[in-house]
Design a protein around this nucleic acid. Structure first.
Length: 278
DNA sequence: CATTACCTGCAA
DNA sequence: TTGCAGGTAATG
C-alpha cells in the first residue's frame, strides 16, 4: 500500500513521538517470519537502545538506534505503524510491537502479513542502500540521471518506474499518475523516450511525489500515518482507479490494462506511445 | 523475461 | 466464487 509519500509521511509523523525514546523491549510478536534476526536475538539486541533518528530509504522506514544499529521496517501492502497506548497492541492485525520508555508502544498493524522488520548493522544498512536506485526527490536525481537509467531499456516505462533498483520509492499509484502528467503511454519502451519526454517525466515524478507528501499520502484502505490519520491524496488522482471515467485533460475515457502484473490506468488520447526506433 | 507465491478481506 | 488490492521474493 504505501509508496514513497506514505512512508515519508509515516516517518515524519513518528519523529516527534519516537526521537530520543528508548526501546524497553519486544512487547508482541505473533508472526515470527516478519522479523530478522529471529526473536530471541532481535529482542536482546534492541532492548535498551535509544532511537536517534527517523528516516526513509525507498519504501523502507529507518529508525537509527545507538550502537550502529538500524531498525528497517517495510510496510509492504497493508502495514501501518503507530505509537499508541499498550492495549492498542491487542487489535486483530497487530503482529509486532515494541515497548517504549514512556509507557507507550510502537505498534505494527498489518492485515496481509507481508510487512517486514529487520534489525540491521552498518553493513546490512549499506546493502539495503545499495539495492535501491536514486531517491527521486534528492538533489542528486536529475533528468540526465533518469535518462541514463532508461537508456537501452526495452521494457515498458511503467515497469521500469516500479523497479526499485532504477528509481527508489515509486509504486503503482504514482507511476500511473506520473505517466499521465507527462503524457506518456505506459507501454512505451523506456529507452524510446526522447530527451524532452524524459524531462517531462522527471518533472512529473517530482511533482506527483511532492504533492502527495503535502497531502499526507493516499489512504485507499489501510494506510494511516503514525498517529492513525488518513492522507488525502486519493482525492486528487487523475487516472488511478478511474477506468471509464473521463480524462481530466481531454475527457476521453480512461482505460485499464495490465502492465508488469499491475493495474495500469491511462488516457489513450493524450498519453503518447513512442515506438522503439528501428 | 513472466509467472507464482506470500496473506487477508472486500466488492463484484 | 472470483478477482483484486498501495509490494516484493522466489521460482521457471
Amino acid at each position: 500500500m504505501p509508496e514513497l509519500p506514505e512512508v515519508e509521511t509515516v516517518a515524519r509523523s513518528l519523529e516527534q513521538q519516537l526521537l530520543g525514546r528508548t526501546i524497553v523491549g519486544l512487547a508482541k510478536l505473533d508472526w515470527p517470519r516478519m522479523l530478522m534476526p529471529p526473536a530471541p536475538d532481535f529482542a536482546a539486541l534492541v532492548a535498551g537502545r535509544r532511537i536517534e533518528a527517523i528516516g526513509r530509504r525507498a519504501k523502507w522506514l529507518l529508525l537509527t538506534l545507538d550502537g550502529g544499529w538500524t531498525l528497517a521496517i517495510h510496510l509492504r501492502m497493508s502495514g501501518h505503524l503507530l505509537v499508541a497506548e499498550p492495549d492498542a497492541a491487542n487489535a486483530p492485525h497487530v503482529h509486532f510491537a515494541l515497548d517504549l520508555d514512556n509507557g507507550r508502544r510502537l505498534i505494527f498493524d498489518d492485515q496481509r502479513k507481508f510487512g517486514r522488520v529487520h534489525l540491521l548493522d552498518r553493513h546490512g544498512l549499506a546493502m539495503l542502500d545499495a539495492a535501491h536506485g536514486p531517491e527521486p526527490l534528492a538533489e542528486a536525481f536529475t533528468p540526465a540521471l533518469l535518462a541514463e537509467q532508461l537508456r537501452n531499456r526495452r521494457a515498458p516505462i511503467k515497469a521500469l518506474l516500479l523497479d526499485q533498483r532504477l528509481i527508489a520509492g515509486i509504486g503503482n499509484i504514482y507511476a500511473n499518475e506520473a505517466l499521465w502528467l507527462a503524457r506518456i503511454h505506459p507501454l512505451t519502451p523506456g529507452g524510446a523516450l526522447a530527451a524532452d519526454h524524459i524531462a517531462e517525466l522527471y518533472r512529473a515524478i517530482r511533482n506527483v511525489l511532492a504533492e502527495a507528501i503535502a497531502n499526507q499520502g493516499s489512504s485507499l484502505r489501510n494506510y494511516r500515518d503514525g498517529y492513525g490519520r488518513r492522507g488525502s491524496q486519493q482525492e486528487h488522482f487523475n487516472v488511478y482507479d478511474r477506468a471509464h471515467e473521463p480524462c481530466p485533460r481531454c475527457q476521453t475515457a480512461i482505460e485499464r490494462i495490465v502492465v508488469a502484473q499491475r493495474s495500469t490506468y491511462f488516457c489513450p488520447q493524450c498519453q503518447l506511445f513512442v515506438r522503439w526506433p528501428t
